[in-house]
Design a protein around this nucleic acid. Structure first.
Lengths: 115, 115
DNA sequence: CTCGTGTTCAACCAAGTGGTTGGATACGGA
DNA sequence: TCCGTATCCAACCACTTGGTTGAACACGAG
């Protein structure tokens, strides 16, 4: 899987409020599918589907443990997003700095354009 | 629009590689729909649709300027995401610190469980 | 006013998504 | 071995999404 592809999957996975809530709860402790499903008003199968999405995105992993399959958050994947975000945030900021510098250097007669 | 709702829209908007690329290019300079569409192998209308998604998410704004409608990136919305991400990243890290502390305090006989 | 350019709107289509229900499968305990 | 619990797979459904094409709208230039 390419990096940009995974990034898409991570963003897409977190676009769903239920999945975001599951991730939030998993920061506190690992949990089984049934435990995760309990607070929501949907079937266990639906939650299982959500987990498959999170797993494909690399956000969670599951281990076998007797009949249970505890879900574990892989928080490192967050870095993928923050790296992307910070890169372009910085680029955008640099642009404003250039703009500010430009405005500061402008001779007075240009002020009329500022409007 | 609720904050959690906007967060969903932002994540959803950035889940598409084309839209991410448009955002990346908009960090360098504002651009019109036609300029934005040029590098991609899709119709201008498709790009216009992408822009509507980005606009609804609050990631871009458009001003009227004669017949052109230059698109401008609203980079502050990035904060919404980073706030969410950092919150849960920190929570996850705290959890590991608790776990580490717990392991450090364990008497020797427990080491067998570490396997 | 008319023409050309830039942009949007509307209808349509194929594919994806989040939900359902029903039936497998896996596995520990009695 | 048989039972119960936990989980997953498959088929189905309504809705959304990203794309298309064709027509409409906005507006400056001639």
């Amino acid at each position: 899987m390419t990096a940009t592809d995974q990034l898409s999957q991570v963003f897409s996975a977190l676009a769903d409020p239920t999945r975001r809530d599951m991730v939030a709860r998993l920061t506190l402790a690992d949990a089984t599918v049934n435990e995760l499903a309990e607070p929501y008003d949907v079937s266990v199968q639906a939650v299982s589907k959500h987990l498959r999405v999170l797993e494909k995105a690399g956000l969670v992993s599951r281990r076998r443990e007797a009949q249970r399959r505890p879900v574990h958050l892989e928080a490192e994947v967050f870095d993928l997003m923050t790296t992307w975000i910070e890169r372009y945030r910085l680029q955008a900021e640099k642009r404003y700095q250039r703009l500010d510098a430009l405005l500061a250097e402008l001779p007075d007669e240009a002020e009329g354009d500022a409007k």
